Simulated scan of single mutants.
Amino acid sequence: MPVPLHRDPQRTREAITRWLVERFPGDGTPTLGPVSSPVETGFSGETLLCDATWRNPRGRRVVRPLAIRVAPVTHRLLPESPWHRQLRLQELLAGTDVPVARMYGSEASGELLGGPFVVMERIRGRVPGDIPSYHRSGWLAELRPADRARVWHGGLELMARLHRLDAGGALDLSFLGPAGIRHQLGECLARVTFYGVRDAPVVTRAGDWLRAHLPEEPDPPRLLWGDARIGNIIYSGATPVALLDWELATLGAPESDLAWYLFADRYLSEGIGVPRLAGLPSREETVTAYSSLLGRPLRDFTFYEVYAAYRFTLFTSRVTRLMERTGITWPNGQTPYVQSAALLAEVLDDAAGRAYARPGAGLTT
């Protein structure tokens, strides 16, 4: 869901050029190509794409493809900004086997672009689109079913690589805050007013269910991507080459990321009334594959599926309200929130149908 932009192209190019001159003073003044924004993805942050070209003293051209991520200022999805946490995490991940974009530097003030920003290497490749959904059209829809399965499984393999990192040892990730589902669910429950769903019956029902079925999470917490989905992966052909977007990163059980991976895909197909692409593995196939990648059975996965649907619905409520402020309307009132809330109700019914009755420790707020 793209952020509505009202940037002056020339002023934006001048601001980026000034920053590059200050960042790379020995390289001289670069020539900046056209600045564009990807239209398929991204509501909570703005991304600018451009090529910067320098000429060295011998006249040789040096081209750096850039991606500039600007922190959200007017369209704030989350109650608190995770901006500095996600930059620090991306720097740490650059020293691991999890592929992320190289960071050239960041700017803390909003003087140049209206908000803090980070300048990164732009990795060549393609990202499955949210708008229109990759189930409806785009490069993924044009692939053979077998190659779509490769795209899906490739994302799972990179996510498992992330989950295998030693979050409590070599990597000090304490800056991400308290670990575990008890804290994360508690934060969601405490912020329903911010997300605009305080009196929504299906959200209240889901919150009550989650309180009553809170799992124990016996394993040490792992680094969680938070927004795990193929729409946050850059692909070269059907091969994943980089993971994107760390603003929702936290510490907890890998099941949480996998449930989000599945629900985000379900929303972009069933949730919006579009047939799911042939070749993409089913829920059952995905759970089996990820259990193998983790080296253990998944635990309490029904709980994490309900939690993913619940959290997704909180976010789409906030997104819907922000977009309505810009004058955006939807046919027949089918807002992102209405669609995800309907899907949340189905997930709750599925959970009841599986007779999921693990009591856990419970949660009171």
Rank of each mutant, 00 (worst) to 15 (best):
R148A: 02
A160E: 00
G295E: 06
L156W: 06
G252K: 11
L224Y: 13
L248V: 06
L143R: 11
Y104W: 15
Y356D: 02
H6S: 15
W260V: 07
D227N: 09
A141Q: 12
R182P: 04
R144Q: 12
A67Y: 08
D349P: 01
P128G: 06
H84T: 14
D219S: 06
T53P: 01
R23T: 14
V35P: 05
A289C: 08
L48A: 02
W225R: 09
R182W: 04
L348G: 05
P65G: 14
A170T: 09
F315M: 14
G360L: 01
R23D: 07
E46L: 13
L189C: 04
S36M: 08
L158F: 01
D265F: 03
P57D: 00
H183K: 01
L173E: 01
D172T: 05
P82I: 02
C50Y: 01
R276A: 15
V202F: 08
D208I: 00
P215D: 09
A341N: 08
P34G: 14
L293I: 11
I230T: 04
Y356R: 09
L87R: 07
R60T: 12
L49K: 07
E305L: 15
A259T: 05
T74Q: 13
A342W: 07
G252A: 12
A361V: 14
A52V: 01
L156F: 06
P331H: 11
V202K: 13
G271S: 05
V202T: 13
S340G: 08
C50V: 08
A108K: 13
P30K: 10
R321S: 13
V319R: 10
L66Q: 03
V202A: 13
V119R: 05
R198I: 03
W19I: 00
R11N: 04
G110H: 06
C188A: 15
G207D: 10
D172Y: 02
V62Y: 00
Q339C: 14
R150I: 00
E91S: 12
R23F: 08
P275A: 13
L322T: 12
R144N: 11
A179L: 10
P25F: 12
A253N: 08
N332W: 15
I68D: 02
M1L: 12
V319I: 15
R299N: 00
M159R: 05
G279A: 06
P72K: 05
L49Y: 07
